[in-house]
Design a protein around this nucleic acid. Structure first.
Lengths: 220, 220
DNA sequence: TTTTAATGTTACAAAACTGTAAGATTAAAT
DNA sequence: ATTTAATCTTACAGTTTTGTAACATTAAAA
Protein backbone atom coordinates (compact mmCIF):
# COMPACT_ATOMS: atom_id res chain seq x y z
CA UNK A 1 0.00 0.00 0.00
CA UNK A 2 1.33 3.37 -1.04
CA UNK A 3 0.49 6.38 1.10
CA UNK A 4 1.85 9.38 -0.75
CA UNK A 5 0.32 12.60 -2.02
CA UNK A 6 2.38 13.31 -5.12
CA UNK A 7 0.47 11.52 -7.80
CA UNK A 8 3.43 11.25 -10.10
CA UNK A 9 5.46 9.41 -7.51
CA UNK A 10 2.49 7.24 -6.62
CA UNK A 11 2.10 5.99 -10.14
CA UNK A 12 5.78 5.54 -10.60
CA UNK A 13 5.95 3.50 -7.43
CA UNK A 14 2.93 1.41 -8.32
CA UNK A 15 4.43 0.62 -11.71
CA UNK A 16 7.74 -0.29 -10.16
CA UNK A 17 6.06 -2.62 -7.69
CA UNK A 18 3.81 -4.23 -10.23
CA UNK A 19 6.74 -4.82 -12.54
CA UNK A 20 8.29 -6.75 -9.72
CA UNK A 21 5.35 -8.98 -8.96
CA UNK A 22 3.93 -7.02 -6.10
CA UNK A 23 0.34 -5.88 -5.97
CA UNK A 24 0.08 -2.15 -5.33
CA UNK A 25 -2.78 -0.23 -3.75
CA UNK A 26 -2.71 3.55 -3.58
CA UNK A 27 -4.45 5.03 -0.59
CA UNK A 28 -6.58 8.01 -1.58
CA UNK A 29 -8.65 8.89 1.43
CA UNK A 30 -5.96 10.12 3.79
CA UNK A 31 -8.43 11.18 6.45
CA UNK A 32 -9.64 7.66 6.88
CA UNK A 33 -6.20 6.13 6.58
CA UNK A 34 -6.14 4.01 9.70
CA UNK A 35 -9.44 2.31 8.97
CA UNK A 36 -8.50 1.72 5.36
CA UNK A 37 -5.24 0.14 6.39
CA UNK A 38 -6.82 -2.14 8.92
CA UNK A 39 -9.55 -3.14 6.51
CA UNK A 40 -7.35 -3.77 3.50
CA UNK A 41 -4.62 -5.34 5.59
CA UNK A 42 -1.78 -4.80 3.12
CA UNK A 43 1.39 -6.84 3.45
CA UNK A 44 3.50 -3.71 3.66
CA UNK A 45 3.00 0.04 3.68
CA UNK A 46 5.11 2.71 2.05
CA UNK A 47 4.30 5.76 4.10
CA UNK A 48 5.36 9.28 3.20
CA UNK A 49 5.54 11.33 6.36
CA UNK A 50 4.86 14.58 4.60
CA UNK A 51 1.35 14.10 3.36
CA UNK A 52 -1.42 16.66 3.82
CA UNK A 53 -4.12 16.19 6.46
CA UNK A 54 -2.29 13.58 8.46
CA UNK A 55 0.78 13.37 10.51
CA UNK A 56 2.67 10.35 9.31
CA UNK A 57 4.30 9.71 12.65
CA UNK A 58 1.01 9.86 14.50
CA UNK A 59 -0.59 7.54 11.97
CA UNK A 60 2.21 5.08 12.49
CA UNK A 61 1.84 5.28 16.23
CA UNK A 62 -1.87 4.64 16.05
CA UNK A 63 -1.41 1.84 13.59
CA UNK A 64 1.11 0.20 15.88
CA UNK A 65 -1.51 -0.05 18.60
CA UNK A 66 -3.55 -2.35 16.40
CA UNK A 67 -1.15 -4.08 14.10
CA UNK A 68 2.45 -4.69 13.22
CA UNK A 69 1.99 -4.48 9.47
CA UNK A 70 5.46 -3.61 8.15
CA UNK A 71 5.90 0.07 7.36
CA UNK A 72 8.66 1.69 5.36
CA UNK A 73 8.80 5.39 5.99
CA UNK A 74 9.54 7.62 3.04
CA UNK A 75 10.90 11.05 3.79
CA UNK A 76 12.01 13.87 1.61
CA UNK A 77 14.20 15.25 4.33
CA UNK A 78 17.60 14.31 3.19
CA UNK A 79 19.32 15.36 6.35
CA UNK A 80 20.87 12.72 8.52
CA UNK A 81 19.61 14.23 11.71
CA UNK A 82 17.75 13.15 14.78
CA UNK A 83 14.66 14.21 13.01
CA UNK A 84 15.11 11.42 10.53
CA UNK A 85 15.81 9.11 13.39
CA UNK A 86 12.63 9.97 15.17
CA UNK A 87 10.76 9.11 12.01
CA UNK A 88 11.77 5.59 12.34
CA UNK A 89 10.12 4.91 15.66
CA UNK A 90 7.94 1.95 15.02
CA UNK A 91 8.78 1.84 11.33
CA UNK A 92 10.46 -1.23 9.96
CA UNK A 93 12.68 0.76 7.68
CA UNK A 94 12.89 4.20 6.14
CA UNK A 95 14.23 5.60 2.96
CA UNK A 96 14.87 9.14 1.82
CA UNK A 97 13.66 10.73 -1.38
CA UNK A 98 14.88 10.76 -4.02
CA UNK A 99 15.23 7.02 -3.77
CA UNK A 100 16.92 4.61 -6.04
CA UNK A 101 14.26 2.16 -7.28
CA UNK A 102 16.53 -0.83 -6.86
CA UNK A 103 17.37 0.08 -3.33
CA UNK A 104 13.71 0.51 -2.55
CA UNK A 105 12.91 -2.94 -3.91
CA UNK A 106 15.77 -4.34 -1.95
CA UNK A 107 14.46 -2.85 1.25
CA UNK A 108 10.93 -3.99 0.59
CA UNK A 109 12.22 -7.48 0.03
CA UNK A 110 14.28 -7.37 3.18
CA UNK A 111 11.47 -6.08 5.33
CA UNK A 112 9.07 -8.67 3.97
CA UNK A 113 11.59 -11.40 4.61
CA UNK A 114 12.15 -10.53 8.19
CA UNK A 115 8.54 -9.88 9.04
CA UNK A 116 6.93 -12.47 6.89
CA UNK A 117 4.93 -13.95 9.72
CA UNK A 118 2.84 -12.75 12.58
CA UNK A 119 2.23 -9.10 12.03
CA UNK A 120 -1.19 -9.00 13.56
CA UNK A 121 -1.08 -8.07 17.16
CA UNK A 122 -3.42 -10.84 18.18
CA UNK A 123 -2.07 -13.84 16.40
CA UNK A 124 0.58 -15.64 18.33
CA UNK A 125 1.00 -18.44 15.86
CA UNK A 126 4.17 -20.30 15.22
CA UNK A 127 4.40 -22.84 12.46
CA UNK A 128 6.03 -26.25 12.51
CA UNK A 129 5.72 -28.48 9.49
CA UNK A 130 2.07 -28.38 8.62
CA UNK A 131 0.79 -27.48 12.04
CA UNK A 132 -0.15 -24.18 13.54
CA UNK A 133 0.52 -23.45 17.16
CA UNK A 134 -1.36 -20.72 18.92
CA UNK A 135 0.82 -20.19 21.93
CA UNK A 136 -1.72 -17.89 23.50
CA UNK A 137 -4.55 -20.34 23.68
CA UNK A 138 -2.31 -23.37 23.72
CA UNK A 139 -4.00 -24.89 20.70
CA UNK A 140 -2.28 -26.84 17.95
CA UNK A 141 -4.12 -27.26 14.66
CA UNK A 142 -3.34 -29.57 11.81
CA UNK A 143 -5.74 -29.59 8.90
CA UNK A 144 -9.08 -29.95 10.63
CA UNK A 145 -7.66 -31.70 13.65
CA UNK A 146 -6.91 -29.83 16.82
CA UNK A 147 -5.46 -30.49 20.24
CA UNK A 148 -5.39 -28.35 23.32
CA UNK A 149 -2.24 -28.22 25.41
CA UNK A 150 -2.00 -27.59 29.12
CA UNK A 151 0.35 -24.95 30.45
CA UNK A 152 3.21 -27.38 31.01
CA UNK A 153 2.78 -29.00 27.64
CA UNK A 154 2.73 -25.56 26.06
CA UNK A 155 5.94 -24.52 27.75
CA UNK A 156 7.70 -27.66 26.61
CA UNK A 157 6.41 -27.51 23.07
CA UNK A 158 7.21 -23.81 22.68
CA UNK A 159 10.69 -24.39 23.88
CA UNK A 160 11.29 -27.29 21.55
CA UNK A 161 9.83 -25.27 18.70
CA UNK A 162 12.14 -22.36 19.43
CA UNK A 163 15.12 -24.68 19.42
CA UNK A 164 14.18 -26.98 16.58
CA UNK A 165 17.70 -27.36 15.37
CA UNK A 166 19.34 -28.79 18.42
CA UNK A 167 18.98 -31.20 21.28
CA UNK A 168 17.29 -29.71 24.28
CA UNK A 169 18.47 -31.18 27.56
CA UNK A 170 16.16 -32.39 30.29
CA UNK A 171 17.77 -29.93 32.66
CA UNK A 172 16.88 -27.04 30.41
CA UNK A 173 13.29 -28.14 30.34
CA UNK A 174 13.23 -28.67 34.09
CA UNK A 175 14.57 -25.18 34.55
CA UNK A 176 12.03 -23.46 32.36
CA UNK A 177 9.22 -25.48 33.84
CA UNK A 178 10.04 -25.29 37.51
CA UNK A 179 12.97 -22.91 37.92
CA UNK A 180 14.45 -24.66 40.86
CA UNK A 181 14.43 -28.14 39.50
CA UNK A 182 15.46 -29.70 42.79
CA UNK A 183 12.08 -29.61 44.41
CA UNK A 184 10.31 -31.62 41.81
CA UNK A 185 10.46 -35.25 40.90
CA UNK A 186 12.71 -35.92 37.92
CA UNK A 187 9.97 -38.05 36.55
CA UNK A 188 7.51 -35.19 36.41
CA UNK A 189 9.19 -34.02 33.22
CA UNK A 190 9.04 -37.46 31.69
CA UNK A 191 5.36 -37.67 32.47
CA UNK A 192 4.69 -34.29 30.93
CA UNK A 193 6.63 -35.23 27.81
CA UNK A 194 4.63 -38.41 27.64
CA UNK A 195 1.36 -36.52 27.85
CA UNK A 196 2.49 -34.09 25.18
CA UNK A 197 3.45 -36.95 22.90
CA UNK A 198 0.08 -38.58 23.33
CA UNK A 199 -1.66 -35.40 22.28
CA UNK A 200 0.66 -34.92 19.30
CA UNK A 201 -0.12 -38.47 18.28
CA UNK A 202 -3.82 -37.57 18.14
CA UNK A 203 -3.12 -35.22 15.25
CA UNK A 204 -0.81 -37.61 13.48
CA UNK A 205 2.55 -36.59 14.82
CA UNK A 206 3.63 -39.93 16.11
CA UNK A 207 7.34 -39.32 16.46
CA UNK A 208 7.58 -35.57 16.64
CA UNK A 209 9.61 -35.58 19.83
CA UNK A 210 12.69 -37.70 19.56
CA UNK A 211 14.52 -38.97 22.63
CA UNK A 212 18.31 -38.82 22.60
CA UNK A 213 19.12 -40.95 25.54
CA UNK A 214 21.58 -39.35 27.91
CA UNK A 215 21.30 -36.05 26.06
CA UNK A 216 17.74 -34.83 25.80
CA UNK A 217 14.98 -34.35 23.27
CA UNK A 218 14.71 -32.89 19.81
CA UNK A 219 11.85 -32.03 17.48
CA UNK A 220 12.27 -34.20 14.44
CA UNK B 1 29.64 -5.83 19.09
CA UNK B 2 31.75 -5.36 16.00
CA UNK B 3 32.53 -8.38 13.87
CA UNK B 4 34.92 -7.20 11.22
CA UNK B 5 38.38 -8.26 10.11
CA UNK B 6 39.91 -5.01 8.95
CA UNK B 7 41.48 -3.66 12.09
CA UNK B 8 41.47 -0.10 10.87
CA UNK B 9 37.77 -0.13 10.34
CA UNK B 10 37.22 -1.88 13.64
CA UNK B 11 38.96 0.81 15.58
CA UNK B 12 37.32 3.55 13.63
CA UNK B 13 33.93 2.03 14.33
CA UNK B 14 34.64 1.50 18.00
CA UNK B 15 35.71 5.10 18.36
CA UNK B 16 32.64 6.32 16.54
CA UNK B 17 30.37 4.27 18.78
CA UNK B 18 32.10 5.25 21.98
CA UNK B 19 31.94 8.90 21.05
CA UNK B 20 28.22 8.44 20.84
CA UNK B 21 27.70 6.81 24.18
CA UNK B 22 27.65 3.23 23.03
CA UNK B 23 29.87 0.59 24.48
CA UNK B 24 31.80 -1.24 21.78
CA UNK B 25 33.21 -4.76 21.87
CA UNK B 26 35.36 -6.06 19.04
CA UNK B 27 35.06 -9.77 18.41
CA UNK B 28 38.47 -11.32 17.84
CA UNK B 29 37.94 -15.05 17.86
CA UNK B 30 35.91 -15.50 14.70
CA UNK B 31 35.92 -19.26 14.92
CA UNK B 32 34.07 -19.18 18.21
CA UNK B 33 31.78 -16.35 17.14
CA UNK B 34 28.42 -17.89 17.98
CA UNK B 35 29.38 -18.82 21.51
CA UNK B 36 30.97 -15.46 22.14
CA UNK B 37 27.87 -13.69 20.96
CA UNK B 38 25.56 -15.75 23.08
CA UNK B 39 27.76 -15.36 26.10
CA UNK B 40 28.39 -11.64 25.83
CA UNK B 41 24.82 -10.96 24.72
CA UNK B 42 25.49 -7.62 23.06
CA UNK B 43 22.62 -5.24 22.41
CA UNK B 44 23.41 -5.10 18.73
CA UNK B 45 25.87 -6.66 16.31
CA UNK B 46 27.61 -5.05 13.35
CA UNK B 47 28.45 -8.01 11.19
CA UNK B 48 30.67 -7.85 8.15
CA UNK B 49 29.77 -10.68 5.81
CA UNK B 50 33.18 -10.88 4.29
CA UNK B 51 35.29 -12.00 7.18
CA UNK B 52 37.76 -14.85 7.02
CA UNK B 53 36.96 -18.26 8.50
CA UNK B 54 33.25 -17.74 8.79
CA UNK B 55 30.40 -17.25 6.48
CA UNK B 56 28.52 -14.24 7.72
CA UNK B 57 25.20 -15.45 6.41
CA UNK B 58 25.57 -18.84 8.02
CA UNK B 59 26.56 -17.24 11.30
CA UNK B 60 23.46 -15.10 11.16
CA UNK B 61 21.30 -18.09 10.42
CA UNK B 62 22.70 -20.02 13.33
CA UNK B 63 22.42 -17.06 15.63
CA UNK B 64 18.79 -16.61 14.67
CA UNK B 65 18.02 -20.09 15.91
CA UNK B 66 19.01 -19.04 19.38
CA UNK B 67 18.37 -15.36 19.66
CA UNK B 68 16.97 -12.30 17.98
CA UNK B 69 19.78 -9.97 18.96
CA UNK B 70 19.63 -7.17 16.38
CA UNK B 71 22.15 -7.53 13.59
CA UNK B 72 23.20 -4.91 11.07
CA UNK B 73 24.95 -6.48 8.13
CA UNK B 74 27.90 -4.63 6.69
CA UNK B 75 28.80 -5.47 3.14
CA UNK B 76 31.43 -4.12 0.81
CA UNK B 77 29.47 -5.24 -2.17
CA UNK B 78 28.07 -2.04 -3.47
CA UNK B 79 25.86 -3.65 -6.04
CA UNK B 80 22.14 -3.50 -5.50
CA UNK B 81 21.56 -7.05 -6.53
CA UNK B 82 19.78 -10.09 -5.23
CA UNK B 83 22.99 -11.00 -3.57
CA UNK B 84 22.70 -8.02 -1.33
CA UNK B 85 19.09 -8.93 -0.70
CA UNK B 86 19.93 -12.41 0.39
CA UNK B 87 22.32 -10.91 2.87
CA UNK B 88 19.50 -9.36 4.67
CA UNK B 89 17.70 -12.57 5.55
CA UNK B 90 17.30 -12.38 9.25
CA UNK B 91 19.29 -9.18 9.54
CA UNK B 92 17.58 -6.17 11.00
CA UNK B 93 19.26 -3.80 8.64
CA UNK B 94 22.25 -3.68 6.36
CA UNK B 95 24.59 -1.03 5.14
CA UNK B 96 27.17 -0.98 2.41
CA UNK B 97 30.77 0.08 2.71
CA UNK B 98 31.97 2.73 2.51
CA UNK B 99 29.40 3.99 4.96
CA UNK B 100 28.66 7.44 6.16
CA UNK B 101 29.23 7.48 9.92
CA UNK B 102 26.14 9.53 10.55
CA UNK B 103 23.96 7.22 8.56
CA UNK B 104 25.37 4.26 10.41
CA UNK B 105 24.58 5.88 13.76
CA UNK B 106 21.12 6.67 12.53
CA UNK B 107 20.52 3.09 11.57
CA UNK B 108 21.87 1.75 14.80
CA UNK B 109 19.55 4.08 16.66
CA UNK B 110 16.61 3.05 14.54
CA UNK B 111 17.25 -0.66 14.93
CA UNK B 112 17.68 -0.32 18.68
CA UNK B 113 14.46 1.66 18.92
CA UNK B 114 12.38 -0.85 17.11
CA UNK B 115 13.84 -3.89 18.75
CA UNK B 116 14.41 -2.48 22.16
CA UNK B 117 12.61 -5.30 23.88
CA UNK B 118 12.30 -9.01 23.56
CA UNK B 119 15.17 -10.17 21.48
CA UNK B 120 15.61 -13.45 23.19
CA UNK B 121 13.69 -16.20 21.57
CA UNK B 122 12.25 -17.41 24.82
CA UNK B 123 11.02 -14.30 26.50
CA UNK B 124 7.49 -13.41 25.64
CA UNK B 125 7.25 -10.36 27.76
CA UNK B 126 4.97 -7.45 27.15
CA UNK B 127 5.11 -4.36 29.24
CA UNK B 128 2.26 -2.30 30.66
CA UNK B 129 3.01 0.57 32.95
CA UNK B 130 5.45 -0.80 35.45
CA UNK B 131 4.46 -4.40 35.13
CA UNK B 132 5.95 -7.20 33.11
CA UNK B 133 3.74 -9.82 31.59
CA UNK B 134 5.17 -13.14 30.54
CA UNK B 135 2.46 -14.38 28.25
CA UNK B 136 4.08 -17.77 28.02
CA UNK B 137 3.97 -18.66 31.64
CA UNK B 138 1.06 -16.39 32.42
CA UNK B 139 2.96 -14.52 35.09
CA UNK B 140 2.67 -10.81 35.82
CA UNK B 141 5.44 -9.17 37.82
CA UNK B 142 5.50 -5.78 39.44
CA UNK B 143 8.52 -4.88 41.51
CA UNK B 144 8.89 -7.92 43.70
CA UNK B 145 5.24 -8.86 43.59
CA UNK B 146 3.97 -11.48 41.24
CA UNK B 147 0.69 -13.05 40.25
CA UNK B 148 -0.04 -16.09 38.17
CA UNK B 149 -2.89 -15.97 35.69
CA UNK B 150 -5.00 -18.87 34.52
CA UNK B 151 -5.49 -19.47 30.83
CA UNK B 152 -8.72 -17.50 30.65
CA UNK B 153 -7.32 -14.62 32.62
CA UNK B 154 -4.29 -14.61 30.37
CA UNK B 155 -6.36 -14.47 27.22
CA UNK B 156 -8.39 -11.57 28.54
CA UNK B 157 -5.39 -9.66 29.81
CA UNK B 158 -3.39 -10.17 26.63
CA UNK B 159 -6.26 -8.95 24.55
CA UNK B 160 -6.77 -5.86 26.64
CA UNK B 161 -3.04 -5.21 26.56
CA UNK B 162 -2.95 -5.46 22.80
CA UNK B 163 -5.82 -3.02 22.51
CA UNK B 164 -4.90 -0.60 25.25
CA UNK B 165 -6.15 2.39 23.39
CA UNK B 166 -9.75 1.47 22.85
CA UNK B 167 -12.79 -0.09 24.44
CA UNK B 168 -12.96 -3.83 24.02
CA UNK B 169 -16.50 -5.17 23.83
CA UNK B 170 -17.77 -8.09 25.85
CA UNK B 171 -18.64 -9.87 22.61
CA UNK B 172 -15.06 -9.63 21.43
CA UNK B 173 -13.84 -11.18 24.64
CA UNK B 174 -16.49 -13.88 24.50
CA UNK B 175 -15.41 -14.68 20.97
CA UNK B 176 -11.73 -14.99 21.73
CA UNK B 177 -12.43 -16.99 24.85
CA UNK B 178 -15.06 -19.41 23.61
CA UNK B 179 -15.39 -18.90 19.86
CA UNK B 180 -19.02 -19.73 19.73
CA UNK B 181 -20.19 -17.53 22.49
CA UNK B 182 -23.70 -18.96 22.46
CA UNK B 183 -22.94 -22.10 24.40
CA UNK B 184 -21.56 -20.38 27.43
CA UNK B 185 -23.22 -18.38 30.13
CA UNK B 186 -22.90 -14.63 29.58
CA UNK B 187 -21.89 -14.37 33.16
CA UNK B 188 -18.86 -16.58 32.71
CA UNK B 189 -17.04 -13.63 31.22
CA UNK B 190 -18.02 -11.37 34.09
CA UNK B 191 -16.77 -13.91 36.56
CA UNK B 192 -13.47 -14.26 34.74
CA UNK B 193 -13.04 -10.51 34.61
CA UNK B 194 -13.77 -10.38 38.29
CA UNK B 195 -11.14 -12.99 39.03
CA UNK B 196 -8.59 -11.16 36.91
CA UNK B 197 -9.34 -7.92 38.71
CA UNK B 198 -8.83 -9.54 42.07
CA UNK B 199 -5.44 -10.78 41.05
CA UNK B 200 -4.43 -7.42 39.60
CA UNK B 201 -5.47 -5.84 42.87
CA UNK B 202 -3.00 -8.09 44.67
CA UNK B 203 -0.13 -6.32 42.91
CA UNK B 204 -1.56 -2.87 43.40
CA UNK B 205 -3.52 -2.39 40.22
CA UNK B 206 -6.84 -1.63 41.79
CA UNK B 207 -8.60 -0.04 38.82
CA UNK B 208 -6.63 -1.34 35.88
CA UNK B 209 -9.69 -2.65 34.06
CA UNK B 210 -12.33 -0.01 33.63
CA UNK B 211 -15.96 -0.90 32.88
CA UNK B 212 -17.77 1.15 30.26
CA UNK B 213 -21.31 0.07 30.84
CA UNK B 214 -23.09 -0.91 27.68
CA UNK B 215 -19.84 -0.81 25.73
CA UNK B 216 -17.16 -2.98 27.23
CA UNK B 217 -13.88 -2.76 29.11
CA UNK B 218 -10.71 -0.77 28.72
CA UNK B 219 -7.28 -0.86 30.34
CA UNK B 220 -6.84 2.44 32.10
C1' DT C 1 -36.53 9.51 41.95
C1' DT C 2 -37.64 5.14 40.39
C1' DT C 3 -37.01 1.60 37.28
C1' DT C 4 -34.41 -1.37 34.59
C1' DA C 5 -30.83 -3.58 32.31
C1' DA C 6 -26.02 -4.32 32.77
C1' DT C 7 -22.43 -5.81 35.46
C1' DG C 8 -20.44 -7.87 39.96
C1' DT C 9 -19.82 -11.19 43.71
C1' DT C 10 -19.85 -15.44 46.02
C1' DA C 11 -20.28 -20.34 46.76
C1' DC C 12 -20.29 -24.67 44.72
C1' DA C 13 -19.57 -28.87 42.02
C1' DA C 14 -17.78 -30.82 37.82
C1' DA C 15 -13.83 -31.08 35.05
C1' DA C 16 -9.07 -30.48 34.08
C1' DC C 17 -4.29 -30.33 35.58
C1' DT C 18 -0.35 -32.09 37.80
C1' DG C 19 3.18 -34.41 40.69
C1' DT C 20 4.12 -38.97 42.75
C1' DA C 21 5.01 -43.71 43.01
C1' DA C 22 5.53 -48.25 41.27
C1' DG C 23 6.58 -51.04 37.79
C1' DA C 24 7.78 -51.55 32.54
C1' DT C 25 10.64 -50.69 28.65
C1' DT C 26 14.59 -49.22 26.26
C1' DA C 27 19.34 -48.33 24.61
C1' DA C 28 23.98 -48.18 25.83
C1' DA C 29 27.81 -50.14 28.19
C1' DT C 30 30.08 -54.03 30.03
C1' DA D 1 24.32 -61.73 26.37
C1' DT D 2 23.78 -59.34 30.57
C1' DT D 3 23.65 -55.49 33.29
C1' DT D 4 22.52 -50.95 34.25
C1' DA D 5 20.97 -46.43 34.05
C1' DA D 6 17.81 -43.68 31.54
C1' DT D 7 13.39 -43.03 30.04
C1' DC D 8 8.26 -44.46 29.78
C1' DT D 9 3.68 -45.69 31.17
C1' DT D 10 -0.14 -45.99 34.09
C1' DA D 11 -3.11 -45.16 37.95
C1' DC D 12 -4.13 -42.18 41.59
C1' DA D 13 -5.08 -38.36 44.63
C1' DG D 14 -4.48 -33.55 45.76
C1' DT D 15 -5.00 -29.14 43.75
C1' DT D 16 -6.49 -25.77 40.53
C1' DT D 17 -9.56 -24.12 37.08
C1' DT D 18 -13.97 -23.18 35.39
C1' DG D 19 -18.94 -22.56 34.31
C1' DT D 20 -23.32 -22.06 36.72
C1' DA D 21 -26.71 -20.20 39.63
C1' DA D 22 -28.46 -17.12 42.94
C1' DC D 23 -28.28 -12.87 44.68
C1' DA D 24 -26.05 -7.96 44.98
C1' DT D 25 -24.67 -3.71 43.07
C1' DT D 26 -24.34 -0.12 39.77
C1' DA D 27 -25.17 3.32 36.14
C1' DA D 28 -28.21 4.83 32.75
C1' DA D 29 -32.89 5.57 31.26
C1' DA D 30 -37.45 6.75 32.18
Amino acid sequence: MIIEDEELICNELAKLLENNNYEAIILKDFKNALNEILELAPDLILLDINIPFINGEALLQNLRKESNIPVIMVTSINSETDEALSISYGADDYITKPYNPNILLLRIGAVLKRTKTNYNTNTNELTYKKLKFDSQKGIIKRDDMEIELTKNEMIIFSYLLNHQNRIVTRDELMTILWDNSEYVNENALTVNISRLRNKLKEIGYENAIDTRKGMGYILS
